[in-house]
Nucleic acid binder design. Structure first.
Lengths: 204, 204
DNA sequence: TTTCGTCTAATTGTTAACAATTCGAGCATT
DNA sequence: AATGCTCGAATTGTTAACAATTAGACGAAA
């Protein structure tokens, strides 16, 4: 276990992760209201903690908040907005690779390789929820390595792109593309990594 | 009074706005912890509402949250990050002008002109707090007109640029630049407006 | 039939008390 | 003096009860 590891996750973060995953997997449909009480009972906590989590997810863009009316699942962005998000995301991730590439350790390589294996498994099982989650975790890895501040901005953009319910024709292609990224990173090939990331983030 | 106007602001939003303004005006120094109880007493509400506000400001990037340790004022971004933020911001605002330019009404023109007058007054008084607040409000105007979703992303980027304590040499220049933007918008001159915005958002 | 008001159930907003955690002062030990 | 320990004050985290708001059902009147 690494020293920098933070095994404890606050209640709020756990709820955030769970709800976010359910939204991405399509278990919660767009515009469907998300109630506080049922979630509180499901997680065995009080409404206060759930409130905190829902508020944070609203700020992230996963949910939309209306005063006195609670939150609902966000609607997908327009095509024009989606293209803008993709452009911004490419620039952020390129910047992050610039920053973190030459300070990555062998442990980072191992972690990324493990994530890649998890992704491959999810692709084989055609488990859209797991694919999305692992995809997010991989990109998040190099972004968070570069800057905690940027990570927050990046997440807000990325979750909005993931709201769209994408039915992929070829799941294994997802794995291929990420394998190319990880290979380039392990080789410390900055240009190659940027190119691979650029090809992975598509304009829909 | 317009129908779409929302005169009521939730307690959380009021606290957010107040704390945000104080951070931008330099009244709260970097890395200084922000305690819940004093704020609660100041606003005459309970800690719960203050908690909500501080959590939201953390997500926005104005404050930094540490579990069990509360929040503190964010540190300014590095030069490289600042340049990236400026680039992203230019692209977002250009996109928003694209979207909203031809659906602006005469009332929007009046609102922008009023904001410009407020800005001019603040520049004359050399009131850095008011200048920052009005500057933010003006840019936010065309962003929010284009998309509520984008507004949230844009705010996260913009507040991080404003954390830096900028001591301007010529306050009236700020007014000049915004006057150029508003003039172009009132003329419905898309290219001119984009150019003026581009020149206003500087790489530090 | 349509429209308007009233009531009620469901839901969110707020509060105050209590639990858990952090951090530093002070002291004992080496 | 330096190190490690205990304790307590300050602070955040969580909870449950209460207040305020919303939305929909139900009628009454035009």
């Amino acid at each position: 276990m690494s020293i920098t590891e933070k095994p404890i996750r606050s209640m709020r973060e756990q709820i955030c992760d769970a709800v976010r995953a359910e939204v991405f997997s399509g278990e919660m449909t767009n515009d469907q209201p998300v109630r506080e009480q049922p979630l509180a009972e499901r997680f065995g906590v009080s409404r206060g903690s759930v409130r905190d989590a829902l508020l944070q997810l609203s700020q992230e863009g996963v949910l939309v908040y209306s005063p006195n009316r609670g939150v609902r699942v966000s609607s997908p962005p327009s095509d024009a907005e989606f293209r803008l998000y993709a452009k911004l995301r490419k620039e952020i991730e390129a910047h992050c690779l610039d920053i973190c590439m030459d300070q990555l350790t062998e442990e980072d390589d191992r972690n990324l390789t493990n994530l890649l294996a998890t992704l491959e498994d999810a692709c084989r099982r055609a488990d859209l929820s797991a694919i999305t989650e692992t995809d997010l975790a991989m990109h998040r890895y190099w972004v968070s390595r570069a800057s905690r501040e940027l990570e927050s901005v990046w997440l807000g953009i990325t979750v909005r792109m993931l709201i769209v319910y994408t039915l992929l024709e070829d799941y294994m292609e997802v794995h291929q593309e990420h394998a190319a990224i990880v290979e380039a990173i392990v080789r410390r090939d900055l240009k190659g990594a940027k190119r691979a990331v650029n090809e992975n983030i598509r304009y829909k």
